[in-house]
Design a protein around this nucleic acid. Structure first.
Lengths: 111, 111
DNA sequence: ACATTAGTTAAGTGATCACTTCAGTATTGC
DNA sequence: GCAATACTGAAGTGATCACTTAACTAATGT
């Protein structure tokens, strides 16, 4: 279920926006409130909340509300799922190149 | 320049679509022509070409035309760049958790 | 030469995006 | 209780998206 295409859509879509990546970057250094996430961004608080909802829907970020403060943190498992999808494709390609190299080396030997 | 935000936008945006991910997946098993990429997809060739252009603009795929066939292949360096961005954030978070764990363990010792 | 194959390009369409503003709701500090 | 804080939600807007069809070019097979 970590390779559920719909989930990957949401995660990569979420990471495709620079403001959202900046929020993830901030959260990688520790939990933060909505206002703290908003502070470095040149947009309305409302816009930040909307980005945050995208991140939460993607599973990359989890939030928890205590009193009037919503605290946000990264969900490393989701990051890992996105990372793995890319990694598997890249490795498949590189293994293929290696086999091709071996084959060429062998056929050269046989001359 | 591998952390150029605009380039990351393009790469993650490119990976956010299931048809494009399917194309990358196909290419991870070896080079393919446009028609070969199109074959398993339920859409017009024209749409596939448009997806391919998105992939090429993102740097994830490189293409080369010989005669009338355009051969496409993965650019593993670009995949690695996307992979690395995610990995760095995840590791930052996990290192932070480790330090926190150490700190808690130490302060417990001191009782 | 002619038909087939392989891909390209342009224009259009409806859906989704990234915002905005504005009006609201809890929660907290005084 | 009252004001400030920390969000939340709805509605609107212009831009970008993922397609479609249709008309085209260029290379190849016979």
């Amino acid at each position: 279920m970590l390779h559920d295409p719909a989930q990957l859509d949401l995660m990569f879509q979420a990471l495709a926006d620079p403001a959202r990546r900046q929020m993830v970057d901030r959260l990688s250094r520790g939990p933060a409130s909505v206002s703290q996430l908003a502070e470095p961004l040149a947009m309305s608080l409302s816009a930040v909340v909307q980005h945050l909802n995208v991140l939460e829907a993607s599973g990359l970020v989890r939030t928890e509300k205590l009193g009037r403060v919503r605290t946000c943190r990264i969900e490393p498992q989701a990051l890992r799922a996105a990372e793995r999808w890319i990694n598997e494709r890249r490795l498949a390609w590189e293994r293929r190149l290696d086999r091709l190299g071996d084959f060429l080396a062998e056929t050269k030997d046989e001359t």
